[in-house]
Design a binder for these strands. Structure first.
Lengths: 187, 187
DNA sequence: GATTTTTTTGACCGATCGTACTAAAATTGA
DNA sequence: TCAATTTTAGTACGATCGGTCAAAAAAATC
């Protein structure tokens, strides 16, 4: 899995064939088939692995927040900082999310503005922020667009990371927090 | 090219093999090789085709703007509206941009925050908006992050489009304009 | 209508894909 | 120590990839 992450993050999803992964890992590809029921299984393992450690990392910070404003700022900031400590893994999973499709070509992980769980949580928080007096008024749609834009900013940063190695993520996190705080705040 | 766009936009880049394209087009795949020097050539043709019509569509609107504020609002709005009239083509090219890599796996089209031409133009406009008194102060870095976030929002919308068919793009454009106007304006 | 040029077909190439399977090697346990 | 179990290597498989090519078909030219 580590070698698969290495290949996907540095050379892209398409380069991550079992043969390539086995070569980098210094094993025969039979070993991969032995430990994973399929290539898709290996890929999904990489995804759920990151979700797990991401959740472990994020949850305490988010749970400590008492306002929607604080929650969203923390969500953005810690999401970006998590990329610092799990850089290659995040890049790899972003690649997977935007590449993996089922046999008919339907996206396996695409974010849907109406159903995506992450977006739904953000939408809820935006509405809460309005009630708490920190955020402007949102319709359901305008909250969803803003939530999707926040997610796009974070996903887009992951693509940035794959291309440019010397990005100041602490500074980037600060800027994103500023941008979306301004975009959401009460006028 | 039309059939390739159809496949890429509906079933993804990976499904767009020469065999599949030829099948949908009702021709033999030799024909594709006859009219295009390679598959990459066909793909690049699809990209530059969209860039051309995109430029033709956008330029008059942007040229009519007299302020940086107006320029950026128009840039966002017209970019989204262009997706309405060239929906499948835009989805396909977004797919290509995020999938196409050279033989070593290096991204062919990834946006680099420091060098991407589109981001550079947005950065210039943000600085101009500050001078014109409409935008807040930006460092070069903070302008680049905001510019990249604007691009991510637009690219992200393209992915949204691939997944959900019933999206009110006029309303979406308005929301994005609002979001980034608030994010950039003088406090 | 005959000849040349352009276009299309369909078979075929070598390479690579994910996977299956067998036999060897390594490890474990009594 | 030796049999049972787990893990590995290596080969082979059918399928599909992008690309090539000779011959047939269609279109253009005279």
């Amino acid at each position: 899995m580590t070698c698969a992450i290495e290949i996907i993050s540095s050379r892209g999803y398409a380069q991550a064939s079992l043969a390539q992964i086995a070569k980098v890992a210094g094993i025969s590809k039979g070993v991969i088939s032995y430990h994973f029921s399929s290539k898709d299984d290996l890929i999904e393992e990489i995804v759920s692995d990151l979700y797990e450690s991401g959740s472990t990392f994020m949850t305490p910070y988010l749970a400590a927040q008492t306002t929607a404003l604080g929650w969203i700022n923390t969500y953005i900031e810690k999401n970006v900082l998590f990329m610092k400590s799990h850089r290659k893994h995040v890049i790899a999973v972003t690649e997977i999310i935007f590449h993996a499709r089922d046999e008919e070509g339907k996206p396996r992980h695409f974010r849907n503005i109406d159903t995506d769980a992450t977006i739904n949580v953000l939408v809820k928080m935006l509405h809460r922020g309005t009630m708490e007096g920190d955020f402007r008024e949102f319709t359901d749609f305008s909250a969803r667009v803003l939530a999707a834009t926040i997610r796009s900013a974070i996903d887009g940063l992951s693509f940035q990371l794959a291309a440019s190695l010397d990005l100041d993520l602490d500074a980037y996190a600060k800027e994103l927090v500023t941008i979306f705080q301004l975009a959401a705040r009460k006028v």
